[in-house]
Amino acid sequence: MSEVIVVTSGKGGVGKTTTSANIGTGLAALKKRVVLIDTDIGLRNLDVVMGLENRIVYNLVDVIEGNCRYKQALIRDRNNSELYLMPCAQTRDKTSVSPEQIIKLVEELKSEFDYIVIDCPAGIEQGFKNAIAAADRAIIVTTPEVSAIRDADRVIGLLEAHGIQKIDMIVNKVRFDMVRRGDMMSVDDVVDILAINLLGVIPDDEQIVIASNKGEPLAGGTTTSGTAYLNICKRILGEELPVRDYMESVKHRPFANLFRRKHA
């Protein structure tokens, strides 16, 4: 039985595409058949992060408009024969596709893949509606910043309204040195505020930039982030793994002396 996962955030630049690429790579490394679908029509990037930009012949819009069969649009990953990418069109816009068409396509793909990972565009408009239409579960990517968490909260509300019950979260780009100094919200703070299940924590790691320079996602590799991504994938498969001990930080308690007696 296959599962459809949408990777979303609301805000742009928090790492949806990198997360999608790494989840796809990690799940494939765990011997699952995976297809990544880029739904960011007009601003595609997943092909670049995966290092597959030179192999695109057909795209998502071609498939939906019937210019080709879906198998013609799928690109096999360079390092993993079980991982495929369905790229999207760069010269069209989000209105070229409807949620119903995505649902129909995903239904076809289900016969062939264990996991269908959908990379959602930023925003909550048409592109978002297309991306979540067929999803069984969602992964929210956020960073410990006010704007990203605010958007994540809004998106969680929209996903719930759409009937998606399984919503997990990845806190990305955490700088533990800043958390320790008290200059960044901690992962606990984020979990407190959004009150959804924490799937994993990814540090703000230069290896991720290097990996995307090379077009090779690092999930499953020997780096800290590579291991963190692989553990996220194992949790997606249902394994009970404790979230990496990210709380080396000191917890600040500014409210501790707030409840002093008034007339004492």
Binding site: P144, E145, V146, I149, R150, D153, R154, G157, M178, V179, R181, G182, D183, M184, M185, S186, D189, I193, H252, P254, F255, L258
Partner: peptide, 26 residues
């Protein structure tokens, strides 16, 4: 909303965020 002085920007951010979310939600 709280007038207490925040000694770190992380806590200040959390406090701001909670106020923003309350107003967003309702």
């Amino acid at each position: 909303m709280n007038t207490i002085c925040m000694n770190s920007t992380g806590d200040y951010a959390k406090n701001r965020l909670m106020n923003i979310l309350i107003s967003d939600r309702i």
